[in-house]
Design a protein around this nucleic acid. Structure first.
Length: 217
DNA sequence: CTCCCGATAT
DNA sequence: ATATCAGGAG
């Protein structure tokens, strides 16, 4: 496991590597962000943006999603994958937004995770990115890189990873650190071809050494 | 744990 | 051909 000092070094290093890390899901309000994050499960941001470009032009309010036939919404998001579940969840969620929340996205985690298709990770993204409230969303990238670096244990669940990060990272840095970890995982410490040679964190990364000895990337 | 699932990279 | 992608629900 990394020491407090080493974790500080990780945070400073990825800050230099990705000075402009940010949310890459295109959106112009909390409602659009919520739809985009729901669509993004097991799918690239790039594909989500490709689909939402037309989707957000056609659907602007929860009412728009509720009144269209399920099969039509399914076809509108088909390229995303997992489209039947996602279409169903979006329609259900919009119905609840209208009935219980005056058509607005609620702000608390308790209310967010109650909505169909929204789990803790999606709720944290909405809290942090849409409302500016402190939260760390642990997605596939955050989980992978924190485990490779030795910030977390291999057996940790996403919730345990989140708790470790909340403990080790100053609260005012949660949001930006989350985005830097995503960028680090997406563009450098990638799942398939991690750039261990040329990695500024190689010295403290146990997984990096293991990889360069065996496979040779 | 399994299922949902198309697009892209390797 | 197989792995992976800003996961969630049963």
């Amino acid at each position: 496991m990394l020491t407090k000092k080493q974790i500080r070094h990780v945070l400073d290093t990825i800050a230099k590597m990705f000075p402009d890390a940010h949310c890459e899901l295109n959106h112009s309000n909390p409602f659009e962000l919520t739809i985009a994050v729901m669509l993004s499960a097991q799918c690239t941001d790039q594909m989500v943006n490709k689909v939402t470009k037309e989707l957000f032009n056609k659907y602007r309010t929860p009412e728009d999603y509720v009144r269209v036939p399920l099969e039509e919404l399914e076809q509108d998001i088909r390229q995303i994958g997992l489209y039947r579940n996602k279409a169903k969840n979006i329609k259900k969620m919009c119905q609840i937004l209208i009935e219980k929340y005056n058509g607005e996205i609620p702000r608390s985690r308790e209310e967010l995770v109650q909505l169909p298709g929204i789990g803790r990770k999606t709720a944290n993204v909405i809290m942090s990115t849409a409302f500016g409230d402190p939260a760390i969303a642990v997605d596939t990238h955050v989980e992978r890189v924190t485990k490779r670096l030795g910030i977390c244990r291999w057996k940790d669940t996403p919730l345990q990873v989140e708790k470790t990060l909340m403990k080790k990272v100053p609260k005012e840095e949660w949001a930006i650190t989350h985005h830097r970890l995503i960028f680090f995982g997406r563009y450098h410490c990638k799942a398939q071809n991690p750039q261990c040679h040329v990695c500024p964190l190689f010295e403290l990364c146990r997984e990096g050494k293991k990889r360069l000895n065996q496979k040779c990337v």
